[in-house]
């Protein structure tokens, strides 16, 4: 059975692994240059006093590759679920070849187990390899962007380390199970894609934030932690402050400016419009800027922040793998049950 599975799968495997290995080679070569230039740049800027300009430029210069690779890493599980998982059984049902293979001296349970195991492990290996190469390549950029785009933030998180392996296992097995239900390859591929995309949107928005209780903190607004002032209403009157938390790499879920009574304020007071242009750009030693911060503190304005600290990164990676792993096992259990009881 292993031979047959491999014989049916080898072309697809060669294409995907060929592409991943080629990409990995490119990443290894460019990744070393990237790490060298980061180390050199960091050394130079530390010597000359300020690194924020270097970091901003460094991130901006590699934005295209950075997000491109994140997109590829996030897409791979979906692609494998759609192209390896969904047709795995449905194509056999569609062409009737299941009746050929089921009439050999092998139980259909074993047939599915070998197919699921072999192709499933291959897909996990593929996603793992890609994730490893991309994560390693992006190490300097992740470090440089620890506060601007922390690893815990959804886009980066899904394209790093263990998470893609969990995704691919899930996408693949769901593809197989959907294929058994739908019995036709093309619709199965479409349904698999829809399920996978829906979960990739739903999990970071509604599930992952509550996997652990987030940390809540109310902090004073200082020149050190103020990162931005944005408009939060169309007429430009209401202001929203972006405040960094102490731990770098944190995933900010919620950030509200609160008044003296601790309740969120709808809008900052009118006098704040005077401060708005200078608080970020002016030097903290400027009395006018100083005055703005002091007045905010005097009137009791503080920032209430709900976040997951960056130190939880690995916990979340494992939790994500466990979550998708459990879903994978459930889908596989369903597939075997359906195969024995219903699929005739």
């Amino acid at each position: 059975m292993i031979w047959l599975t491999w014989r049916q799968f080898r072309v697809q495997a060669a294409v995907v692994f060929g592409a991943i290995v080629a990409l990995a080679v490119v990443l290894v070569v460019t990744g070393r240059e990237l790490a060298d230039s980061y180390a050199a740049g960091l050394a130079a800027c530390t010597a000359s006093g300020g690194c924020s300009a270097f970091l901003t430029n460094f991130l901006r210069d590699h934005d295209a590759q950075y997000y491109g690779l994140a997109a590829v890493t996030m897409a791979l599980p979906g692609i494998l679920g759609v192209f390896w998982g969904a047709p795995l059984v449905s194509r056999e049902l569609e062409t009737g070849t299941h009746r050929l293979v089921w009439s050999q001296s092998i139980t259909r349970t074993r047939w599915l187990a070998v197919k699921l195991g072999l192709v499933g492990l291959a897909s996990m290996l593929a996603a793992g390899l890609l994730s490893l190469a991309v994560s390693w390549w992006a190490t300097p950029l992740d470090e440089a962007g620890a506060s601007a785009r922390p690893r815990l933030s959804p886009v980066v998180f899904a394209a790093r380390d263990l998470a893609p392996i969990g995704y691919v296992a899930f996408a693949f097995v769901v593809g197989v199970a959907v294929g058994m239900l739908v019995r036709r390859a093309l619709p199965a591929m479409a349904v698999t894609l829809a399920i996978f995309v829906a979960l990739q949107i739903a999990v970071p928005l509604w599930v992952r934030p509550s996997l652990l209780p987030p940390v809540e903190a109310t902090v004073a607004i200082t020149p050190e932690n103020l990162r931005g002032i944005g408009m939060s209403s169309p007429d430009g009157t209401a202001r929203e402050l972006t405040i960094a938390v102490e731990e770098s790499g944190s995933w900010i879920l919620d950030s509200d400016t609160v008044g003296a009574d601790g309740a969120p304020v709808g809008a900052l007071p009118a006098w704040f419009s005077e401060c708005d242009p200078i608080m970020l750009t002016g030097p903290p030693t400027d009395p006018a800027v100083r005055n703005c911060f002091d007045r905010l503190a005097e009137e009791g304005y503080r920032q209430h922040i709900t976040y997951h600290p960056g130190s939880r990164y690995w916990t979340f990676q494992w939790l994500e793998v466990a979550l998708y792993g459990a879903a994978t096992l459930a889908a596989a259990g369903f597939a075997f049950w359906w195969l024995r009881k219903r699929l005739c």
């Binding site: 049916q8 062409t95 009737g96 070849t97 009746r99 050929l100 009439s103």
Partner: peptide, 11 residues
């Protein structure tokens, strides 16, 4: 042994 209808084979 079973020879199924339309004698399916892996194309």
């Amino acid at each position: 042994g079973f020879v199924a209808q339309d004698t399916p084979a892996y194309a």
